[in-house]
Structures are given as structure tokens and as C-alpha cells.
Design a protein around this nucleic acid. Structure first.
Lengths: 346, 346
DNA sequence: AATAGACTAGACAACGTTGTCATAATCAAT
DNA sequence: ATTGATTATGACAACGTTGTCTAGTCTATT
């Protein structure tokens, strides 16, 4: 009924409490023979260390926090899943912490969280992870942090980071559109606070330039990562004189909005207009036609972030679990679906 | 830098550790004067009890688990939010636990979770909450549980429950369609494991009967809570001879699929066909036209569930926070949007 | 005025683990 | 064989809190 403790294991293995503790924590100074004896007792009793006691005693703790303020539940759930799985592998607890990125007390709030929940560190998801002030302030307070950020490579900032190369993926997606013959491709931005926006835009511009095409500022529209934002901007575009032949929505919701506006205008996709999104959310799969998009492996990214966080604090814990630094950069995959097609002559 | 402990509070207030503990836990046997003195010291030092120590010592613990296996991230995030907020109010920790409802080891897995994470209890979300075998097995093992279930009233089962009266809401939605003149209304079911499916269907049938309309089995189609399921069944319906004039999708994803299929068939909504969904997810708001649906207050439901769980264990903790038993039944609200309209003569 | 009962408060141990320090066992080199 | 260094193990305290038990202080009743 009741759970086995380290004491039970020690008794069964015929060793002291401390020796069992050493085996559990993979400390080197245990004879192989002893280690095996203890391991057997552990397996035998189905022993698992008690988090509460562990956290209480040590300078070290076995729980991390996941901090996010992301409007996209699909993303949030994926990130949670990835971090949680990794926590279970490593024997860590997870404290989720949705919050308000704009709150002026956010830093204090997070510092409090770490203190009171005895967290070993924090995994920061975008856009909070991309706010250097916050990350720096946390680092200054001695809080271990890992960031999930949009960007091609390690900026060597105040904290370890896992990177999503949105730029390269946006380049590939734009290239795909150009290959289809599109010359006037509108870019519907998301919030500038999300670094993914300027990154994706940079990839879009780079691809145009690589093909010797002009970057027309009139086709690059500011906005938000929402359906409505995509809808409204597309209506404005279509009402204008020099219409684009393709639209690159900075995420799938924007693209879904663009799709709805296009159809509301009596136009067909991709016949009259090609539309592409980003993120491979269900919106992109369930619209008609399904949207061309770029898929990021959110769960794997979250897992890698977790490994980096723990690895920074206890290198031996995560040995052989995550590969070297090259594993820290993820490039979303282009997924071509029917919403993009060859440009048609008017 | 370091956090204040009960010791610091005791010293500042000039009382013993135990007295501070009594104040924190709202135990009755403390003189008002003493209580105030202690409270002042607590506020002064910004003291918050340490979860790890609390959980370690007592027979009682201050953390709960949230168990779910729900394919809908919008729902999951809302539930999390509601439970988490309530946890913070009550000073509880939250352990999220996504899992596989079909796993044969689920019961052991949950029992282990409770034991090893020292959880005071579990909040069960649908569909796991609606599996009586699981709930009963957990109750038999002495695990405190609260269920969020679809159904009109307390069944007096093995565990306290919060109810979502899908039946009444489905009745209202169906009534709305009938009022618009619809006589042939198809019902696209979700998974039968989710009790919401038979409940909503019961409401649909009851409304038809109340208006003296026949319940045609050919119009009640089994299926799943997915876009594709809605799409395919609608195509089949529209290919048939005796078409319905309205479709009631058991959730918004089904309805969105139905909408896509309808348009793929060259028909207009609501002109040729009215479509209604359920749940008020973003799908219903962002489709064109937006879908008539029924909105459940998921966050409030989650909060109430949490209150019931804690209330069952420590009645005095939740006094005055949640109202009486009548607060345990929630009826989703009908939201009328453009996807439903008066039936047109053919 | 004495005393039972209720109320209030404190001393102390205990929860399960790890950090510190001491000690025992082993080994290499003289 | 003895020393010295190294490795392997154990005894004990401590983390911050609450449960148990005891003792002191009131109030009410006789």
C-alpha cells in the first residue's frame, strides 16, 4: 500500500542509507558489486525517490518550470508534452506556468515561482524567451534558464538556447512560391514581439532577392497572428489595384483568414491566388483547400530545451541523451499542399 | 535572497513554530490577538509555506493532479487554466498528467502518480472521468477524485462530480433549428466513449419529440469528433436522396468539416443548408460563415471541480468559495451565428 | 473558593532524502 | 611490512513543516 523508501532499499541490500542515495544519484564512488546489489533491491521494491524529500533537503532540486504566454493552444500543448516526457525520463517534476508576457511584475513573479516551488530552472517559450531584458534579469538573479527562440544560430546570450530556424524555412517556402511562377507575393506579418515574425520575413526577402525579384514594401503588411488579421489585410489587398498572386501568411491562422477573405471575394485558391501558412497547425490541414505550410517539431524542440537546461546544471545527468550543439538548431520542414499552385495568366 | 521560513515568522511574532503553523492552516484554536500578530509577521516577511516540507511531513498534501486524454488542445488549455488558477488561490500545486485513456495500466499509472507525487487528489477530465471502472478503481484504492462529466445531474457515483448539461444545451440548439423551420436535421455524433455524445443526442431527440417531429435513425450518424469525420459524413448525406436541411455537428470540428463538405458540393450555408456546432471553439468563430454553437464555460467548470475536490477533503478550506450543489451543474449557452438560417423552399 | 472543562500555546519528534564529515577498506610504493 | 594515498562506506544532522502530546490559562459551575 504505502510506498517503499530508501530505508527499505538499504535494509534489503544490506547497506546504509547513504550508499543507496549514492546509487540513485549516480555518484562515482560506489563499487560495482555494491551498486548492483542496490539496483536489484531498487527494482525489487519498485522504489522511486520521493520528490518532496529530495527537494527539501538539497541545494539541488528536481523540478523545473515551463513558462509561456502563447495564444496558440496547439503550440502550448506540444511544448508541454515535449518537456513533460523529458521530465519523466530524467526524474524531474514539471510546474507549468502560463503568464502575461506584458506584466511589469513578470520578473518578480518568476523569481518567486522559482524560490517557492524550489525549481531547478525554467524553460522559456516564445515570446517571453525572446525578451532579452527578462532573460538577462533572471540570469542576474542566478536563475537557470533555457530559451526556445527563433533564429539561425546561437547568439551567445545570457542563457543556453534552442533555435528554430524560421528564416531558412521561410526561405524555402518563398522559393517554392517563386518556382511556381509567382512574382508578387504578399507577406502578412505577425506580432513583432515574436521574433519569428522578423525571422520569417527575412527569409522571405532573402528568397526574393536570391531570385532577383524586388522586395515591394507595399506587399509587406504588419499585423497580428490571428485569423481576423489575415482576413482584413487580405481584403484590403484584394481591393487594391495591383494585386499579389500569392500570399505568405506568417502563421496558419493568418493564412486561414486570408483564405476566407479570398473566397469571400469570389476568388478561388489556388486558381486565382496561392496561399501559404506556417506552423502546420490543424488550421492548415482542415481548411479547404489544405494549406501549404512549414512544420516545426515542437515536441522535439521542447525536449531538447529541457536537456539543455538540465545539462547546464548537471552535465552527467543528460549524457548521451541529446546530441551536440548541432542538435540545438531546428529547421521547419516545407509541406506542400493544394493551396499553392502555378501562377495563372490573367 | 533566501526565502523566509516559518521560523523567521515565529521569531518576529514572538510565538512558537506551531502557532504559526496553526495560523497558516486556519486552525480554530488561536486567539484573535495572536492570530493578528502572526498574520502581520507573515505579511511583513512575505512568507509563503514551503510545499516540499509541507507535503513531506503530513498525512495531508498540497498538490493535485489533472488527468486528461483529450484531443482538443483548446479544451485542455482551458481546463488547465481553470484548475491552475484555483490551485493558486488555495495554495496548491498542480501536476498535469496527459495520458492514454485506452491504456490497460492506466489505473496503476494514476495510483503511482498519486503515491509518488504525493497528490491529495485527482481532477479527471472527460473522457477518463466518464469511465466508471476507472473512477471506481481509484476510489477503491482510497484516491480522492473529482470528475467533470456530461450529464444533467449528480448520479451519486463513487466520486464527487461537476456536471455539464449537454443535453439541455443540445435541446436548445435543436429547438433553435426547429424554430427556423427545419424538419429534417441530421445529427453527426462524436465518439460514444465521450458521454457528451449520447447526452447531446438525447437533447436533440427530446427537442424533436417536443415539437412532434419524428426521430429518423437515418439522420443520426455515428462518427468521431474530427473535421474529417464531419466532412465525410456530410458528403454521404448530400449524396443521398432525401437530404436534411440542417446539420447538428456534435462539436465544432465536425461542423467545420460539414461546412467544408457542403461548400465542396457547391452549396451555400445557410442558404441551402444550416449547420450548427458545439463547444464554441475558434473553429466556430473563424469559419465562414461563423458557426452557431453552444459555449461551455470550461474554465469555470474546472475551477468548480477543483473546489469540489478540495472541499471533499478539507471542507473549511473552500468555505464561501464555491456555492452549493446547484453550482455543480453548468448549462452551455446557445450562441447563434450566421451558419443557421430559416429553411428555404426548394 | 475549588474544580472541571474548554481553550490556547509550546516542546518535540517525524517525514525521506542528501550534505558533511569521519572511518574503514583497498591499493601502490617504499 | 609500513606508510600514504586513494577509494568506498557509514553515522549523523539538517531541510521546513505538521502531528502528537503536554501544560498552562481562562471561564463556568458547584
Amino acid at each position: 500500500m504505502s510506498k517503499a523508501t530508501i530505508k527499505d532499499v538499504a535494509r534489503q541490500a544490506g547497506v546504509s542509507l547513504k550508499t543507496v542515495s549514492r546509487v540513485i544519484n549516480n555518484e562515482p564512488t560506489v563499487r560495482t558489486e555494491t551498486r548492483e546489489k542496490v539496483q536489484e533491491a531498487i527494482n525489487n521494491l519498485g522504489y522511486q525517490p520521493d520528490m518532496a524529500a529530495r527537494n527539501l533537503r538539497g541545494a539541488t532540486s528536481y523540478a523545473v518550470g515551463l513558462v509561456y504566454d502563447n495564444p496558440n493552444p496547439y503550440y502550448v500543448v506540444d511544448i508541454q508534452q515535449g518537456v513533460l516526457k523529458c521530465c519523466r525520463e530524467l526524474g524531474y517534476g514539471l510546474q507549468i506556468h502560463p503568464c502575461d508576457a506584458a506584466s511589469p511584475q513578470l520578473i518578480d513573479e518568476l523569481a518567486d515561482l522559482v524560490l517557492h516551488s524550489r525549481l531547478a530552472g525554467l524553460v522559456l517559450a516564445p515570446p517571453i524567451s525572446e525578451n532579452d531584458d527578462i532573460v538577462q534579469a533572471l540570469a542576474d538573479r542566478g536563475i537557470h534558464v533555457v530559451r526556445i527562440v527563433s533564429g539561425a544560430e546561437a547568439p551567445g546570450g545570457p542563457a543556453p538556447a534552442v533555435h528554430v530556424n524560421d528564416r531558412a524555412a521561410a526561405y524555402a517556402l518563398t522559393d517554392h512560391l517563386v518556382q511556381l511562377g509567382h512574382r508578387r507575393i504578399a507577406f502578412l506579418s505577425g506580432e513583432e514581439e515574436h521574433r519569428s515574425t522578423p525571422e520569417r520575413r527575412a527569409g522571405y526577402e532573402a528568397a526574393l532577392r536570391a531570385h532577383g525579384l524586388p522586395v515591394d514594401p507595399a506587399l509587406i503588411l504588419p499585423g497580428r497572428y490571428t485569423f481576423d488579421s489575415g482576413f482584413n489585410r487580405t481584403q484590403a489587398l484584394l481591393a487594391g489595384t495591383d494585386r499579389p498572386t500569392a500570399i505568405f501568411g506568417c502563421n496558419d491562422e493568418i493564412a486561414a483568414g486570408a483564405l476566407a477573405a479570398t473566397r469571400a471575394n469570389g476568388m478561388t485558391v489556388p486558381g486565382d491566388l496561392s496561399i501559404a501558412g506556417f506552423e502546420d497547425s490543424p488550421f492548415s490541414r482542415q481548411s479547404s483547400p489544405p494549406l501549404t505550410t512549414a512544420a516545426q517539431k515542437t515536441e522535439a524542440i521542447a525536449r531538447q530545451a529541457m536537456l539543455r537546461l538540465i545539462g547546464a546544471m548537471r552535465p552527467h545527468t543528460t549524457e548521451d541523451m541529446g546530441a551536440g550543439p548541432e542538435a540545438d538548431v531546428f529547421v521547419p520542414n516545407l509541406i506542400v499542399r493544394p493551396s499553392t499552385g502555378p501562377v495563372t495568366s490573367r
